[in-house]
Design a binder for these strands. Sequence first.
DNA 1: TTGTTCCTGAGAAGCACTTGCATTTTTAGC
DNA 2: GCTAAAAATGCAAGTGCTTCTCAGGAACAA
Lengths: 134, 134
Amino acid sequence: MQVLLRNNLRWTRQRRLIVAAMEGRADHPTAEEIYHDLRNRGEPVSLATVYRTLRALAREGLLRELHGHGPDRFDPNLVPHYHFHCTRCGRVFDVGVSYKGELDRIDVGPGFAVVSHEIIWEEICPSCRGKEGS
Amino acid sequence: MQVLLRNNLRWTRQRRLIVAAMEGRADHPTAEEIYHDLRNRGEPVSLATVYRTLRALAREGLLRELHGHGPDRFDPNLVPHYHFHCTRCGRVFDVGVSYKGELDRIDVGPGFAVVSHEIIWEEICPSCRGKEGS
DNA sequence: TTGTTCCTGAGAAGCACTTGCATTTTTAGC
DNA sequence: GCTAAAAATGCAAGTGCTTCTCAGGAACAA
């Protein structure tokens, strides 16, 4: 991953830690979650740095930002895929529907330029389902 | 629209104004935008009431809430359809791709319950495209 | 008309970030 | 390895969006 950090981005201790904390995660953590992960392991990082780093990595294309209700989430999985989102707890999961590349090539109208697309399912996840009734 | 307001929701002056301001709009306004609309017309409403009313209407299923970067937006068009979102100015537009009902019926995994789905295109809209270079 | 319940406005509070700035760190060049 | 320039960090303050609190005001049912 570090080899990809060009453009005046320095490979600092904090960035190494944050990248390591993200690597291989499939649970789409928030900046807060990464911050607490590192804090709990005794690693000194500030929340501002976690935010700055995560956004920088997303700008470099090394991470994908997910927006929706609640705090932004980050996904290290760069293979195009879709998500579903639990409307109760806010968690985001991957969905196994194959990526529809043709939707990136549709013509949405004159002057518009498609960058990417995302399909989001609104769901109730099994663990919230268990606590039903509330 | 008023006939649909059941469940202890009272048909107040403010709610009438807010519903009227939303009716037929295709520009997916934010709560702030509705608030300023009414204020500019000399109608006395508070921002808190606009937020409360819009959320209440969405809970009743009379409006759709759109989440993404920036403030939440509201859509009075209940016919299932998709959106694209300008990554520069944050505005949301309707996209003419026909609704894929089968995606509401996919099996995302044991215990998950699909409520709905949305496809969002990330775009640069014509007016931001014109101001390119910034 | 009256009582109950719900709604409203105004401002405070809260969450999720972002920014400013003084102080490190990193890194390229010697 | 040393040095200077540039970039990153931590902290605290600031911002944007939204919800909450609460006292007073409207709506609706009887």
